[in-house]
């Protein structure tokens, strides 16, 4: 089931690749809030809390690492 969902996602993504937004149409996409990973330290903090308190982590980037968390 999970593999099916993944394959459907990939198919949708490849279908979407045909979109071609021109550079002068990307003003909105250039805003910081439209950039993945640009949220700053609050995201780092949250990732570390989740890493410490839950058994699984990572996904958007490498798992926040390096602690013998209590």
């Amino acid at each position: 089931m999970k593999m099916k969902l993944f394959l459907i996602s990939i198919s949708l993504l490849l279908g979407a690749c045909s979109s071609n937004v021109k550079p002068w149409e990307r003003g909105n996409l250039a805003r910081a809030e439209m950039t993945f990973g640009a949220e700053g330290l609050i995201n780092t903090i949250n990732d570390h809390v989740y890493f410490s308190k839950e058994a699984t982590s990572g996904g958007s980037s490498f798992a926040a690492g390096g602690c013998g968390c209590n």
Partner: peptide, 23 residues
């Protein structure tokens, strides 16, 4: 850890990202 990612612009107002990670 290894990560493979695709970031795709879908429209003037929409952007998406897919990652696969193995650790």
């Amino acid at each position: 850890d290894m990560i493979l990612g695709v970031t795709q612009i879908l429209s003037k107002n929409t952007i998406t990202q897919f990652n696969y990670g193995y650790g």
